[in-house]
Amino acid sequence: MHSKTLSFIGAGHMAEAIIAGLINTGHPAERIIATARSDKTLAPLQARYGIQTTTDNCNAIAQADVVVLAVKPQVMKEVCAQVTDIVARQRPLILSVAAGLTCATLSRWLGGYDAIVRAMPNTPSLVGTGACGLYATDAVSKEQCTLASDLMSAVGITEWVNEERLLSTVTAIAGSAPAYFFYLMEALEKAAIEQGMPLESARRLIIQTALGAARMCDASEDAPEEFKKRVMSPNGTTERAIFHFQDHGFEQLVNDAVQACFNRAEELGESLGSQ
């Protein structure tokens, strides 16, 4: 991995998170190239990480073993049109972190080139604790799959899916899911304030509790259900709260929300692919 040259087309927050993770895990800065439309955008990245930067996408791809497409989905078609010829000549692995754009759509925009991996990372990647789903076309070699895994593992964990549609499930349970946890934390804050607790104290307790619960699950092979049961003493306070959740359809509500997210991800993919 460290001998490979990686070119990031787009230098936004997700690209920077991955670059920072790669640097922190020992990838040589001189083997990382980032592009953007202006030097003003690139200057901070160059200063912070010592990587190569350029406003010329074709020049960056001409040196690359792996090309990370990290521009917004709305401009991806234009970017692909600019680099189709150099991609065909260089034949790098294409790794896309653009939400909603299928491999078939990207391949079409790249003139039929199909050595493509789609990645669905989430925002905790920005602090090195991301969760990312990966899907590869049949044209991607085992070595290239390993490259993709190593690259995205720089900012968290990775899980491969064998059907591209399951990336919409990844979106629903990981890509969008940080907001679900934030929403629960927000609701707990409001409940604590309603009972008279200062916001600052409630927030500190809730954040630490969320962190602790996640670490307990991460440190054990036991299912979340088992941890839930251990906190639920018979006729106790936790049991009363959990029963209240259950009586008001909590699990069905979560299932419906995940399905709604999945459906929207599929709709966006179809809409973008029709361009």
Results as ranks from 00 to 15, higher is better:
S3R: 08
T5A: 04
T5W: 02
F8K: 06
A11P: 15
H13L: 07
M14S: 12
A15R: 15
A17S: 14
I19R: 13
I19D: 08
A20W: 01
I23V: 15
T25M: 05
P28D: 05
I33V: 12
A60M: 10
A64W: 07
D65R: 14
V66N: 09
P73D: 02
V75M: 09
E78R: 14
V79W: 09
D85F: 02
R89D: 09
V97P: 15
A99V: 13
A99F: 06
C103H: 04
C103D: 02
A104R: 14
R108M: 03
W109Q: 09
L110P: 11
G111Y: 02
G112D: 02
G112K: 02
V117G: 04
V117C: 10
V117W: 03
P121L: 01
G133N: 09
L134I: 02
D138F: 01
T146N: 05
A148M: 06
S153D: 09
A154L: 06
G156V: 10
V161R: 00
N162P: 00
E164L: 00
L166K: 07
V170D: 01
G175S: 03
A179C: 11
F181T: 10
F182T: 08
F182N: 09
E186K: 13
I193W: 06
E194R: 11
M197P: 14
P198R: 04
S201I: 11
T209N: 10
T209V: 04
G212V: 04
A214C: 12
S220A: 08
S233F: 03
S233V: 05
G236S: 05
G236A: 08
T238I: 05
T238E: 04
H244D: 13
Q246C: 06
H248D: 05
E251N: 11
N255M: 08
V258R: 05
V258H: 06
F262C: 00
E266Q: 14
